[in-house]
Design a protein around this nucleic acid. Structure first.
Length: 777
DNA sequence: CAGTGAGCGAGCTTCCGCTTGACTT
């Protein structure tokens, strides 16, 4: 056979497959979808039964024209996109756009990229599954309807440029609700009691045994009373129980679990993980990184087995087949695994090496034997009290997969003082000598804030989003300023400790830091207001089960049991009514909260979302001609839901007028970049040691003069030809400033020696500045 | 870069999923 054109989705895949197919086959890639709904417009003709208006995606025009050329020269075009809803649609769009004739076109699928799998696929072609394509069209149209009908409601009722969507709005809701749970959480404390016993062995060596009391005391007095009883008590073993246990390895990596583990073990952000994985994939070191499958090919299993035998011996091997449990999984690919299991490490950046190592270990461990444990529990009676102490320990009898890999957890849990690995040999009725008993006040823990990775985990559990969209979704909600990823310092908290030792009870108050956060997701004020608005007006799409429910219908469409535009119609009619209703009747939502009354002026103090973000307002807008209210932006760290009246009143103490300097006013305030002094339309930042609420004129003038001195030194060169051209000294060395724009000076040239012409050359040679749109962050 | 928050109106914003570079810092 000659002139066969095989089209897959990714170029890296194309390269590999071309090697397997050999002569007569050209393999190329479409780079994903090539067509999409028109973007300028709604893109769907509601009147014509939801007819989608497809156009070639602008950045795919070149690819499409190349594909057209290649298809023309081919006798047979093999559409080899992924075997899922999106892949089927890609094949169908290609057929439409390239105007392929059915008799010259074949649809093939394979689940692993091996020679066998591909030749097998070539021998078993099929035609395009239109039901599956329709399921994708329904998915696409539904997302467009939700996104493009709800977003404009937000523009009108909350703030321009906002966005809403089936996935992002629910992701934000999760974070908003978690934040409120945390806000409403009241922590309770209880006294946890741990005793240390001394256990001598035959040779007279003494080991410590720690045991926790089965009961926690609610108050200090109860704990103290118990310790009092312990003073005279005899401690005896009442029971020693041994129980076998086992642990099994985790499943091979999917996109979501890889993102979680890379976050926990390597501290990678979700998008960082994906870009490192992409590089490993492109250099042929791992399989495809956007997958929801936990399946391993037989080749991977066999080579893993060989490797385990070689490294650890035959008894460490246990072949396992894993089944995907997650909702809505489509399993077009394998799990994420090393391409060659015999390669334990790879070359590359340290990030690439560490991620690869993680993938290798996880894959190998998944084919290894269970770890066998023995758990020992010792119960110790207290002669003077009914409570019992429990000591438990775990011994690994056979390490199995633990030799290679242990999955981390999200628990931030307090380190627990008991639970030790080895329990000294003990028997019932043994009497123990107690060295000390400590009662420590412990606090119940509030729910944990989401990290990027734990949010992905939650979304996957809910069946919301796909492997290819987890990272972009996390980025979107942050870009839209619904959510911020931040560190927050903890606060000090006091706790009581009572210690019984040598017959005496010692009482102490200690402090600990609690609630510190690192790289956690917090909702912004606008995120909260938008979420509330959407929940109030569009409860259906904000429901955590909405996606799962429509997925069931997409499945029915794929099975031919449901007609796609009928499904859409059933959704659209009532939904669109809600949109109209909200546009007409919903109140403008600014998240306004009245904090109270200013005791000085008697005016009302409130907070709300303004045009430029959250603000505090002093006084109410009156009907006509009245006094205008005063406004002040909230500072970073202040939030509409949590700010107090006192904090809000502080805001109105700025700007402060300090007096005159050189005949011009000097004032101090706090801006986007912190506290500053303003004089003659120039700004000078306050130092760390200066307090904007108390700083005086003298200090302000000093700062102004320091700044002037600095600015003098900043100018390297000025030109008589054009006053707007300057060479200045900046943070990163000299640069050219021309008409308020900055230009880089090439490293090879000395700034002082540049002539006017040289500078203008650099200015005109600089690339035109990007439009504000593409620069949006 | 450092301050904005009246009201009008034009013109714009916006979704999810499939892919890779082309960008800047």
């Amino acid at each position: 056979m000659h002139n066969n054109l095989v089209i897959v989705e990714s170029p890296a895949k194309a390269k590999t497959i071309e090697k397997f197919l050999g002569e007569g086959y050209t393999v190329t890639s479409s780079m994903g979808h090539v067509r999409d709904l028109e973007k300028k417009d709604f893109g769907i003709d509601i009147e014509k039964n939801y007819l989608p208006k497809y156009v070639v995606t602008p950045d795919k025009k070149k690819i499409v024209s190349e594909l057209k050329k290649m298809a023309k020269d081919a006798q047979v075009v093999w559409l080899a996109s992924d075997e899922d809803r999106e892949g089927e649609a890609i094949a169908w769009h290609l057929m439409e756009v390239l105007k392929l004739k059915p008799e010259h076109t074949k649809r093939i699928v394979f689940h692993e990229i091996t020679k066998d799998a591909i030749t097998n696929a070539i021998q078993n072609p099929r035609s395009i599954d239109q039901h599956l394509v329709n399921a994708q069209q329904a998915r696409r149209v539904l997302d467009r309807i939700v996104g493009f009908e709800v977003s404009p409601v937000l523009w009108k009722k909350v703030k321009p440029s906002l966005s809403a969507g089936r996935v992002q709005s629910v992701a934000v809701r999760l974070i908003v609700e978690r934040e409120r749970e945390i806000r409403d959480f009241t922590s309770e404390s209880a006294f946890r009691v741990i005793a240390t016993f001394l256990v001598p062995d035959d040779k007279g060596n003494v080991t410590e045994l720690k045991a926790e009391l089965s009961k926690r005391f609610e108050t200090r007095d109860e704990a103290a009373a118990f310790l009092e009883k312990c003073k005279t008590a005899e401690f005896s073993v009442s029971d020693v129980a041994k129980k076998p246990g086992k642990r099994s390895p985790a499943q091979p990596f999917t996109t979501s679990t890889l993102q979680q583990e890379a976050s926990r073990k390597l501290g990678f952000s979700v998008s960082q993980t994906m870009s490192v994985a992409q590089r490993l994939y492109e250099s042929g070191k791992i399989t495809y990184m956007r997958t929801d499958s936990v399946n391993l090919s037989s080749l991977a299993i066999n080579t893993s087995k060989k490797k385990i035998e070689e490294l650890h011996g035959e008894n460490y091997v246990k072949i396992r087949k894993f089944k995907t449990k997650s909702k809505g999984a489509q399993e077009a690919h394998e799990a994420i695994r090393p391409t060659y299991m015999d390669q334990e490490t790879v070359d590359g950046t340290s990030q690439e090496q560490r991620l690869y190592e993680l993938i290798w270990k996880r894959t190998i461990a998944s084919q290894m034997a269970d770890a066998i444990m023995e758990r020992t529990t010792v119960t110790i009676d207290v002669s003077t009290a009914s409570e019992k102490f429990i000591a438990s320990g775990e011994v690994i009898v056979f390490d199995g997969f633990l030799r290679v890999y242990i999955e981390s957890t999200d628990d931030e849990g307090q380190s627990n003082g008991n639970g030790q690995s080895i329990i000294p040999p003990l028997h019932a009725k043994d009497v123990l000598s107690m060295e000390k008993t400590i009662a420590t006040e412990r606090f119940s823990q509030r729910p944990a804030r989401y990290t990027e990775a734990s949010l992905v985990k939650r979304l996957e559990e809910l069946g919301i989003g796909r492997p290819s969209t987890y990272a972009p979704t996390i980025t979107t909600v942050q870009n839209r300023n619904y959510v911020v990823k931040e560190d927050r310092p903890g606060v000090e908290r006091e706790y009581q400790v009572l210690e019984l030792k040598g017959g005496k009870i010692k009482e102490q108050t200690k402090t600990e830091i609690t609630g510190a956060e690192k790289s956690k997701l917090f909702p912004t004020d606008i995120g909260m207001v938008v979420t509330d608005f959407l929940v109030d007006n569009f409860s259906e799409i904000m429901d955590y089960n909405f996606t799962a429910d429509v997925e069931k219908e997409f499945d029915d469409i794929a099975d031919g049991k449901l007609v796609w535009n009928e499904m859409i119609d059933k959704f659209y009619k009532p939904f669109h009514e809600k949109v109209d209703d909200a546009l007409e009747n919903a109140e403008r939502s600014k998240g306004e909260r009245v904090l109270g009354v200013d005791p000085k002026t008697g005016k009302q103090v409130s907070v709300k979302i303004g045009r430029f973000g959250p603000l505090a307002q002093l006084g109410e807008a009156s009907e006509e001609g009245g006094e205008k209210p005063q406004f002040s932006s909230l500072r970073s760290g202040q939030h509409i839901e949590t700010i107090t009246l006192e904090e809000a009143l502080e805001l109105f103490k700025l700007p402060r007028e300090l007096g005159d300097f050189e005949g011009k006013k000097v004032s101090v305030s706090i801006g986007r970049f912190g506290p500053y002094v303003r004089h003659d339309n120039k700004f000078v930042s306050l130092g760390k040691e200066d307090d904007p609420y108390s700083v005086g004129l003298e200090r302000a003038v000093e700062l102004i003069e320091i700044k002037r001195e600095k600015d003098k030194n900043a100018v390297v060169k000025v030109f008589s030809e054009d006053a707007e051209l300057q060479i200045l000294n900046g943070r990163w060395g000299p640069y050219i400033k021309y008409k308020k724009k900055n230009f880089k000076i090439p490293k090879s040239t000395k700034a002082e020696e540049l002539s006017f012409e040289d500078c203008m050359k650099i200015v005109s040679a600089a690339p035109a500045t990007k439009s504000t749109r593409s620069r949006k962050k």
